[in-house]
């Protein structure tokens, strides 16, 4: 396999809970629990999962906005987790993030020009103020705003326009990887489509690679080349978009897909309704984390954690159903 742009191995992010001072053996929320994946240059990896599955934490820990507990994150062959503060700052011009809430992620006291100019000057892009000003104008045009918006403050914009500013700030420093954390979930559908198209357009213009995190499967399907499905801090399934949608293997992925209401009122599909809620990540179930809600549960699922299996070329799944050592005929469910 060629060298991936980003190679994440056994990434773990644990948060301690409870009183740590008196209790040395405190509990942990395993927000990201042993996740490995690669992102090739120029592709879009979509990450889906429900609230609390750790998808945002994972996105942030790649940039070390949240420090990983253990594991390795290799970006362009360099280990990110070992970088010093100065080196990390340089790295951040190469990996950028777009946040979910365009109302909270822009400084209300700065004009758009200062918001974008700050990104440029921090990363020493552009020789002098005049050049930076021109760059800001170009950026605004590229994200579908007008140069006259440069002097305005964030509150003067609608949600969709703010998200465009957030995207302009991310591409300002010429990154090669952008982590987009639920970038359209706060927007109305008509505006959401505009922003999704903008992401596609910028990907071509700037030769970007995306990690696109969202809870909405139809959005992820629209933008991604490959998709990873997360459940309770684990990556339960990973495959190319077509593979995943034509033949979802993990019972959770199957349920997730069947839960999405179809736009066609005549298409009444067989729906898998999951029982109960997502268990607490502080005390996850033993064995496979999904076993209490799984309709194909076997005895082994309650005891043994499933390992990741390449069920088909490029299609990874963590489920005992597809493990030949446990299940003699893995294609049958």
């Amino acid at each position: 396999m060629t060298d991936a742009l980003l190679d994440v191995k056994e990434l773990k992010v644990y948060f301690p809970v409870g009183n740590r001072f008196f209790n040395k053996n405190s509990l942990f929320v395993k927000a990201v629990d042993d996740i490995s994946f690669r992102v090739q240059k120029g592709e879009t990896l979509g990450i889906v999962g429900e609230s609390g599955c750790g998808k945002s934490t994972m996105g942030r820990s790649i940039l070390r906005l949240i420090e990983p507990t253990s594991g390795s994150v290799k970006f362009k062959g360099r280990e990110v987790t070992d970088l010093s503060k100065n080196e990390l700052r340089k790295l951040r011009s190469d990996i950028q993030i777009v946040f979910q809430d365009p109302y909270a992620s822009l400084n209300p006291q700065l004009t758009v020009e200062s918001i974008l100019g700050e990104a440029l000057s921090t990363h020493q892009i552009g020789q002098h103020a005049k050049e930076r000003k021109e760059m800001v104008t170009d950026l605004l045009v590229n994200v579908g705003l007008s140069p006259k918006h440069a002097g305005r403050y964030p509150h003067e914009f609608s949600g969709g326009q703010r998200q465009r500013i957030g995207i302009a700030r991310a591409i300002a420093v010429n990154p090669s990887l952008i982590v987009a954390d639920e970038p359209v979930s706060a927007l109305d559908v008509s505006v959401q489509a505009q922003i999704l198209n903008l992401f596609q357009h910028l990907k071509k213009t700037y030769e970007l690679t995306y990690i696109f995190i969202a809870h909405d499967l139809s959005v992820v399907k629209h933008v991604s080349d490959r998709i990873g499905v997360m459940y309770l801090g684990k990556m339960v399934e990973q495959a190319g978009k077509k593979q995943l949608f034509q033949k979802p293997l993990h019972p959770y992925t199957q349920a997730l897909m069947s839960a999405i209401p179809s736009l066609d009122p005549d298409m009444k599909k067989e729906r898998i309704i999951l029982k109960g809620d997502v268990p607490s990540p502080i005390s996850p179930p033993t064995g496979c984390y999904f076993n209490p809600r799984c309709q194909f549960r076997m005895e082994v699922c309650e005891k043994v954690k499933p390992r990741e299996i390449e069920a088909e070329p490029g299609h990874f799944v963590s489920c005992h159903l597809y493990d030949r050592d446990i299940h003699p005929n893995p294609t049958e469910k």
Partner: peptide, 25 residues
């Protein structure tokens, strides 16, 4: 029509771009 075109269709496997409604509410 615009609203319906803005929603990514789960049953559509082509990569054609969405047709958003221009502008804002």
């Amino acid at each position: 029509v615009g609203l319906l075109n803005s929603v990514p269709d789960m049953n559509d496997d082509s990569d054609k771009p969405l047709v958003p409604i221009v502008g804002n509410v």
